[in-house]
Structures are given as structure tokens and as C-alpha cells.
Design a protein around this nucleic acid. Structure first.
Lengths: 249, 249
DNA sequence: CTTTTATGTTACAGGAATGTGACAACAAGA
DNA sequence: TCTTGTTGTCACATTCCTGTAACATAAAAG
């Protein structure tokens, strides 16, 4: 028996940025009440939220979960916000991850130093939730498009994310939205096997429920679209485990 | 209407007027800390920076160094920003040099007068560096084509920016202002798919809100105008993703 | 070989996304 | 003032996509 009912809330994060789902926001803040407030407002607006109470935790999460946006309190125990910011910026992967800092009113010097260190914007406490959400949106909009690779490839299969074009060899391939996301996910994790539940989480999103068998149907549609008669099947079925992008031997 | 840079420009180096170097930005600002901040962020993004602490100095530098872009603080000792702007605009050489003014929050009258005197854009202090950089790029981008690209083209479709004339094959095409900007944006980013929201941001501007579906209608009008019976539709619909300028296959 | 389990395949109703035409508000000129 | 053109929005039509069920086939288990 495998994974009767996966608890999606706890699924281990994959080393993949989910470009299509809702943006993942990391809130770094030690004041619990504020975290609750932020979480409530962000989630209501369609963001996913994780939080960290201190700098070390924050850095760890950044590395593992790759948030799309970071809300960073400037006053933190131990590791200061500035230091956290600097360390995040040091890794080339997160060089472009937007950071919004939360500062107390009137800490002008903080703001300047924050912006110097690479924060993208700041919000002064106390702030209105709607303003904060608006800023998050604005910052994300500017940052997201450039976050990903432009062309994904596997053998003679290629997917251009900018033009949304998919080709197999010389043949142009048309995919529906779901097949497009599915193939994209598989291309971003070539060779790796995913269970139906994992695929649902990553391609469909954690929030909606669809029958796991639905994945089969979409895999079928994908195969039909990208496979060339005579050539090897690019989608591999691993019985009782799932599917992967790989050549069937 | 602040167009932010198209995604391409964030990954690729900026299209530059002078073949030799990065765009030269003159920062006119008397507050040293702010100059430092601006310099840091602009240089990090590939601009060269010179600064001037007052109006006279600024005018001198403009004459001698011919910057590609001027960031102009509105509150200056002695010669005011408005006056500097006016004087710069007086010389035909610098009639087209983009000027972005930096104003304190809420100085609406300043903004208006600034735009009257010939500033291209304004940024309200305090501002986020990324926003500022984005605006610089946007302004530069609007300024550059006049020096370089006068005619945008795709297959047998051409758009002359100087005369505002659009032709498809031998046929003269009339477009409304919005369709013109829309087509221009698509021509400047051939093949790329843009969501309705992105198009609203880039073509309509970030500041105003219109229904996303409005884009559909304008796409329709554009199609009606530029498509020739029998020939392929130049505007591609990508379901659940957006639109692109491209031949349907 | 038979049974059980997992996956492949097909068809289809309902729904979501897009196309389309009309219209009122508005602006710019004549 | 009237005329002309443009714009954003709506309502309706159309197209395409999606999830599901039902059945077929293949692979393991007994």
C-alpha cells in the first residue's frame, strides 16, 4: 500500500521553485503576535507563508525552501536583520530574491543601511496590512519574471518559458496549460520520480483536491503530445511509485 | 505611465546608446548619504555615475559630460531643481535627455510643475532602489529608440515610431493610441508571452486599474487592424498564460 | 493459471478561458 | 455646439480544457 492519504501540509520541500503556484513568503520576525497578523493577511491574499523567529532559522529556510519574497524584521535577537540580508545576498541564487524590511518608525539610518545591503523596499511599523500586501505584490511583480531559466531541455525536447513554446525535435508541440506545467515540472527535475500526490502538490497546487488518477490522464495526454512515433517514450512509469521524465529502456 | 523594463532587459545587459559603455547617470543631490546610496545601487546595476551637489555644478557637468540620464533632486540649495531642469531643456542637445526628479512625499505641486518643465518621471522619497533602477531603465528605454531604433518590424508588419505609421504589407493600418502602445510593446518583445496583468502594467501603466479582460478587447481590435485575410494571425493566444506577437503555427 | 492490483485508454459533461459585438462615457476637435 | 473617435466594460457566444468514471490491459501475487 502506498501513501493512502498524504498529509500535504507536511510534504517535504523539493529543490524546486514553484513558479506557478502562489508565491512563498518568508516572514522573519520574533514577535509572535506580529507573525500571526502577517500570516493572516498574506494568506488571505493568496500567499503561502513560512516564518522564522531568528536569523539562523531564516537563513536555513531560505536555503531549503527558496521563498519568493522575504519580509525581514530589522530588530532580531542575535543575528541582526542587516547581517541576515547581507548573507542572503551573498549567495548568487538569492541575489534577486526580493527582501522587504520591517523597521520601527524613524530608524532612518536603518533604512539607508538596509537599502545599501540590498533590501528592495521597507515598511515602517506600524503599517496597514493592505499597504504591506500591496508592496509585496509590487516587489514580486518586478522580481519574479527574471527568476527562472528561459529554456528547459531534455534531449530533443525543449520548452521555452518566455514564448511558451514546446518542441520535440523539429515538431512544434501544443500542450494544454496543465500539461505545460506538468512537463515543466518534470523538466525541472529530470529523471526524478514523483508520486501522483507529489505531482498534484507541485503542478496542481496544494490546496485543491483532485483524484490521483487524474494524473494518469494528464500523463497520457502529455505522452501523446510529445512522443514521436518510433522514438523512445520520454515519460517513464515507475510502477507503484510514480512518473519521471526519462527514457524508457 | 511608468513602463518597467521588459523581462529581457533584466537578464541581458541594457541596450545602450553609446556603443562603448554603460549609460552615464548624473545624480544631482546635496544629501551625501543619499548620493552614496544611489551610486551604490546604480553601479551595481551597470550604470556609471557622476554626482553634483548643486545646480551650477549640475549644469556644468551636463554640458561637459553629456549624461544619458539625470536624477534631479527637487530641493537644492541656490538653484532649484525646476530651474535646473528648465535650463537643461533649453539647449536642444539635451532636449531629449531623460530627467527623473526626486521629490519629497506628497509634494504634488512639485510633481506637476516638474512634469511641466520637462521632467520625464518622478520618484517620491523615500523610494526603493529597485524601483528607482526600474524607472531609470524605463526612461532610458523610451529615450533610446529615438537615437537608434526608429522602426520596429516583424515580418511584413512595421511600425515607424517617428511618424507613428503602421503598415501591414502594403496596407496602411490605423491604430488607436492604446493599440499602438500595445503593438509597440509586443514588437519590442517579439515572441514573448505576457499575461493580461503584465500587459496592463507595461502598456497601461502600473498606476491605473482596468479590468484584465479589457486587454482581450484591445487584442481583438489590434488583430482586426493588423491581420490580413488569408494570412496567419500575428497575435498568438496562449491559453491561461496571455498573448504574444508571433505566427500561429 | 487465476486473482489482485496498478496503469493505460477512451469518452464525455461541465466548466473555465477566450472571442465578439454593442454601448455609454468621455475626450478632442471642428 | 456637434461630430468623430477612443476607451473600458458588459453580456453573450464559442472554443477549449479538465476531471472523472468506466472499461481495457498489463504486471505482480497467490
Amino acid at each position: 500500500m502506498f501513501q493512502s492519504m498524504p498529509d500535504r501540509a507536511k510534504t517535504t520541500p523539493l529543490p524546486v521553485r514553484e513558479a506557478h503556484g502562489q508565491p512563498l513568503v518568508l516572514v522573519v520576525e520574533d514577535e509572535a503576535a506580529l507573525v500571526t497578523l502577517l500570516r493572516y493577511n498574506l494568506e488571505r491574499e493568496g500567499f503561502r507563508v513560512i516564518d522564522a523567529a531568528n536569523g539562523e532559522e531564516a537563513l536555513l529556510i531560505v536555503k531549503e525552501q527558496r521563498p519568493d519574497l522575504i519580509l525581514l524584521d530589522w530588530m532580531l535577537p542575535a543575528l541582526s536583520g542587516i547581517e541576515v540580508c547581507r548573507q542572503i545576498r551573498r549567495s548568487p541564487e538569492h541575489r534577486r530574491t526580493p527582501i522587504i524590511m520591517l523597521t520601527a518608525r524613524g530608524e532612518e539610518s536603518d533604512k539607508l543601511r538596509g537599502l545599501e545591503v540590498g533590501a528592495d523596499d521597507y515598511v515602517t511599523k506600524p503599517f496597514s496590512p493592505s499597504e504591506l500586501v500591496a508592496r509585496c505584490r509590487a516587489v514580486l511583480r518586478r522580481a519574479l519574471p527574471q527568476a527562472e531559466t528561459e529554456v528547459l531541455q531534455y534531449q530533443d525536447l525543449s520548452m521555452d518559458l518566455a514564448t511558451h513554446r514546446v518542441r520535440r525535435g523539429a515538431k512544434d508541440v501544443h500542450l494544454g496549460p496543465t500539461e505545460f506545467r506538468l512537463l515543466r515540472f518534470l523538466l525541472e527535475n529530470q529523471g526524478r520520480v514523483f508520486s501522483r500526490e507529489q505531482l498534484l502538490d507541485h503542478v496542481w497546487g496544494r490546496d485543491i483536491y483532485v483524484e490521483p488518477r487524474t494524473v494518469d490522464v494528464h500523463i497520457r495526454r502529455l505522452r501523446k503530445a510529445i512522443n514521436i512515433e518510433g522514438a523512445a517514450d520520454l515519460v517513464r512509469t515507475v510502477r507503484s511509485a510514480g512518473y519521471a521524465l526519462d527514457v524508457n529502456i
